[in-house]
Design a binder for these strands. Structure first.
Lengths: 153, 153
DNA sequence: AACTCAATGGACTGTCAATTCCATTGAAAT
DNA sequence: ATTTCAATGGAATTGACAGTCCATTGAGTT
């Protein structure tokens, strides 16, 4: 749709969504997560570091090391993930704004573009990692606890 | 915001938005449009070709050649422009869908992702090239006719 | 008819994000 | 202590997309 999520952003969303449905007691290694969500391990590793730095993940080195979510899924909004992964400092540039474009002196597309940005932001702020699993749960076997739910192949 | 418009898509929106506020009788050359919207001429040229192929622009070669909008601004939706410029055949892939993901067998992010895609699509469908100029008009000198309006530096 | 001008279209090049490689750090197990 | 394992982080490579070049086509002008 001409509209893209950066690769790191997409991968982060995938990986975190996956982890949200794992046993929060057990740590998962980059290597295993990499296979599960189909993202190159070395690259995923960098993304995990970002998420760790931002306090979304808790990392542990060595034997039985790996990652766990630092807080419950319901407290991790999509926007937290997207922000954590944002490599460049969010240019937030306007479509027509050739440098000199702001609310006072708006470019022709300023208003329309703002509307869309608002929608995207609203979306990212209003969804958390707790939602998708719930969906799956109800449409699948209900007796299995959320905590120990396994991802289907 | 981790969310991007492809360069061709952004340029196309910019260029078409600009053209919408030009005299619809006069043609504009790639070279001039290139300066006006600050997009490299050779690259803009390819984008113009796409828009021409899709019937959004009318092209004319040689002396006094150039482009004009093929239909009035109000009849050119943003989505028409975005679709015209889409280079690859819109993968429309799902965030978690590793190949096997659809409405029946949705991935964990399927629902949330659909919501956002809906917003974006709705935005692109509900705005046309006629809108931004109107905005500018009312906040600027009103006696100057829309047709002959010049873009401020 | 000859000339000029602008779009067309394909081949080529450059750039930056995506991805890999590798050496280091720190924590657990023996 | 030593070994092993996994995260860390920077440097090097790759690849996709952004951007350029150039030869061709077709429409006006003289």
């Amino acid at each position: 749709m001409a509209m893209y999520l950066s690769r790191p952003a997409e991968y982060a969303l995938r990986a975190m969504s996956y982890m949200a449905r794992l046993d929060p007691e057990k740590r998962i290694r980059t290597r295993d997560l990499s296979k599960a969500v189909d993202v190159p391990a070395a690259f995923l590793s960098k993304i995990m570091r970002r998420l760790t730095d931002q306090g979304i993940l808790d990392a542990k080195k060595g034997h039985h090391g790996g990652y766990v979510l630092a807080r419950p899924p319901a407290e991790v909004r999509f926007i937290d993930i997207l922000r954590a992964v944002e490599f460049e400092p969010s240019v937030d540039h306007c479509l027509f704004g050739l440098g000199n474009c702001d609310a006072q002196n708006p470019c022709p597309l300023h208003r329309e573009w703002s509307i869309l940005k608002g929608h995207i932001e609203q979306w990212a702020k209003s969804h958390t990692l707790a939602e998708s699993p719930k969906e799956l749960q109800s449409s699948r076997q209900k007796r299995q606890s959320l905590r120990s739910a396994k991802l289907p192949a």
